[in-house]
Write a protein that binds this DNA or RNA. Structure first.
Lengths: 237, 237
DNA sequence: CGTAAAATTGATATTTCTCAATGAGAGTGG
DNA sequence: CCACTCTCATTGAGAAATATCAATTTTACG
């Protein structure tokens, strides 16, 4: 978990052939703006397990995920961890009011981000309300997801949590990898537990239970939805 | 809980002497804009228990809370309820991407809101990026609160939840009623339970436990923090 | 004053956690 | 290529926290 050297250097990459061109914050920019925007962001790579930023760090950059998966989490003083979300390509990280990050972010597996220094980025936004509107949309979408997750954390049983997670994760992957009943789970069982407000043992047992019922098959690096309807039934109420 | 008649009529009120003039979404407007803005919003009153809008309703209006307290919640198909937040004067409600509200909102006690029809409001924002920025700030602040609440729901014990809630609620009231160890609780025990992901019985027992330990006193319509430090200790990790 | 709703309290049940042991897969160095 | 080790995942047994069910008690309100 050594902190990576955050070198911001010319990337030699172009927004126009960026993987997240259409979905990310950049979706709101026209071709001319994109060329200018290109100079603000730098591609940075993080290895598995590296921390991209930590809660309470002064915010110096914003990040657009280009590749890989990140876990976003908060820690209690005694070490308990709550994962508040997983970031995927197209997600935009780093917005806050306090000037400090309000959660930490680790790479799960290798991650590539487009990193923007805060000051020039804010200056760029300044007279581009459509970009601000795009950022606002992303915030509102996240807020909606956060509320859904509150319902899950506060009111759902372990079975429902796991079933809901599997379906939701599959859904999120659709736009990236297409629809499939084979659901890769790049995060560890501990990550899933900390996302769902459970212990690793409960997650493991619930996976096994789902498998024994014939709803899923636990495969290497993920699960396969053998009976999506059954999983939906478990997740539903 | 009969739905109230949503009459939008000239209010005869003026933004300039509005209670939430400085804190709400309007804080970003100058005097001239405020005069124009005045014509967009209408004061509407809701009685205790009335529903201001419901999840999945098509969004026709935005709301600025002027007076009173609202509970914002989501229901699972089987009736389990998660309160995702309480709205106080200055809070702005109704933003979403889907065109439908993604939670329901009830008045707890009498509530007055400043109601804006969606279309003209959006038109007003259109060429006023500073207002959009203000709305974005509110969204980001809420997002941060939502993440804090996820930690509470997923990782804190009942005692910690209740203690954290009391301190957090007191804190929110500071800007409205000034700092005080007397904390009014306009919401029911059931509301508190649904906010904290607990049952009403557990909330009640925890209140009693805190009182027996001398940390709080349960008073009519709220609690009194007899020993704030003790409550903070319970809330802390 | 009487009734209904809300809150509290008690007894018991259930879920999930904790602690402990075992098993499986990935990377390493001989 | 194979043991070795380390981490991660699974499984089991028992404990603890919280939920559920049931009964009062208190408060609100007509």
């Amino acid at each position: 978990m050594k902190p990576s050297m955050v070198t911001i250097e010319p990337s030699g990459h172009f927004c126009s052939d960026c993987a997240v061109r259409g979905s990310a914050v950049c979706a709101s920019l026209d071709a001319a703006e994109l060329r200018e925007f290109e100079h603000l962001g730098r591609r940075v790579h993080f290895d598995a397990g590296e921390t991209v930023f930590s809660e309470e760090d002064i915010t110096t950059s914003f990040y657009n995920v280009l590749e890989g998966v990140m876990r976003l989490y908060k820690l209690l003083p005694d070490g308990r961890r709550q994962i508040v979300g997983f970031a995927l390509p197209g997600d935009f990280l780093g917005m806050n009011l306090s000037g400090r990050h309000n959660f930490s972010a680790d790479a799960i597996g290798g991650v590539t981000v487009c990193q923007f220094a805060k000051v020039p980025f804010n200056r760029f936004i300044e007279d581009r309300p459509h970009l601000l509107r795009r950022i606002n949309e992303l915030a509102i979408r996240e807020l909606s997801q956060a509320r859904d997750h509150m319902v899950l954390l506060g009111r759902r049983s372990a079975d429902e949590k796991v079933a809901t997670f599997l379906l939701g994760w599959r859904e999120r992957l659709v736009s990236l990898e297409g629809a499939s009943n084979t659901v890769p789970l790049p995060m560890s069982r501990q990550d899933i537990a900390d996302y769902l407000g459970l212990t690793i043992e409960t997650v493991s047992r619930t996976f096994t239970k789902l498998e024994r019922r014939g709803a899923i098959e636990i495969i290497h690096g993920g699960i396969s939805l053998l009976d999506p309807v059954k999983v939906e039934t478990l997740a539903a109420p």
